[in-house]
Design a protein around this nucleic acid. Structure first.
Lengths: 193, 193
DNA sequence: CGCCGAGTTGAACTGAATCAAGAAACGTGG
DNA sequence: CCACGTTTCTTGATTCAGTTCAACTCGGCG
């Protein structure tokens, strides 16, 4: 009986079904890593070697630009995580990833994933599901950036993940919403009145 | 000798290689359709039945909201096209798609694609590549929305696809850049001075 | 105890939206 | 092929959401 296999099956079940044995094969490629709060997982101008799933804690994907950073994504338990653009192209990017709480992840390396493609459909299937799910998230973010004000974006986030505000610092949330910490502070004040 | 097969091979070659026979199998699932300028391809609150590739012309993906629309994507020759979010979930969305020039597309239906998944790795592989490429485009758009001013976004677009300005109406480009036609007009004036 | 990063608040500024009006381009029918 | 109405594009004036800069508070930690 394989604990990681069961965990993985649980995570992927909403996406597609496969027998537990298949998940156990996949799980045998996964390696678990721990990161301390604020630890950099993948640095700027490095190449992402892993596609990961967060099993405990949270992590963020940032873009560095002239003494400031923007947060492209905040990832929590059971979500895909990593600089996926760099992973796909296997080229360095200006993105970096960082644990924002003490964090445990399971990851598969680029090479192992390619090995898995050769051995069974499951590798390709997992990659497809990951890419599709990441696409949907990105398009949702794009729509919200284009159509909503900062305040509306915050209200949507509150609706979707109310616990975020408890766990994640306001400067990260502000950056994720595409605004400054000052503006975010004012919006929160206005809303809680 | 299969003309569509050769065309498809040419489009996918940058992504991954497969023998021509494989592409011809895939091509046998594709259906070609023509749309007139401004013709709606998939309406609001409909479900996207096809994943397409544009072979001639151009088309756009819009989101309708209270008497205004934003353009989420402009697609040209040899690019993937469709309301991909709706295609993946097979649920209706508030997006609609429209030909913005007289347009020819090749498309595979959701059912046929699933059929193809059963028959060979190629279907899954194509889906993976499509999703990955669409993800990268979306993330690039997100980064540009978060980090650049409207003017900088326009300059980047000009660099990437200088011919767009000749082919596509300014109101569509403005919307795609996330600004009003008025602002876009002012930016163009400023730049061409 | 003192420091430092996170968060708050205020004032001035700015990029882009909105509203309104006019000019140019476009296509459709007579 | 021209005349008309419609849509697209431009330009100006005003407004507004969100930024920037600066000062101050608070809470945690060495």
């Amino acid at each position: 009986m394989n604990k990681t296999g069961i965990l993985i099956k649980k995570i992927f079940d909403p996406h597609f079904e496969a027998p537990l044995e298949v998940w156990e094969t996949f799980a045998s490629f996964l390696k678990q890593s721990s990161y301390k709060k604020n630890e950099i997982i993948k640095g700027v101008n490095k190449t992402e070697k892993h596609l990961s799933i967060i099993i405990e804690g949270s992590a963020a994907i940032f873009l560095w630009k002239e003494n400031s950073t923007v947060c492209l994504d905040l990832c929590y338990e059971n979500e895909f995580f990593g600089d996926y653009m760099s992973f796909l192209t296997q080229k360095p990017t200006e993105l970096f990833t960082q644990a924002i709480e003490p964090t445990e992840i399971l990851s598969i390396s680029y090479l192992d994933l390619n090995e898995l493609y050769k051995r069974s459909q499951i590798g390709m299937h997992i990659s497809r599901v990951a890419a599709e799910s990441l696409f949907i998230d990105k398009q949702t973010q794009q729509i919200e950036l284009l159509m909503l004000t900062a305040e509306e974006r915050y209200l949507k986030l509150l609706e979707r993940q109310p616990e975020i505000v408890q766990r994640t610092s306001q400067k990260h949330i502000a950056s994720y919403l595409g605004i400054t910490p000052e503006s975010f502070s004012r919006i929160r004040k206005k809303i809680t009145l």
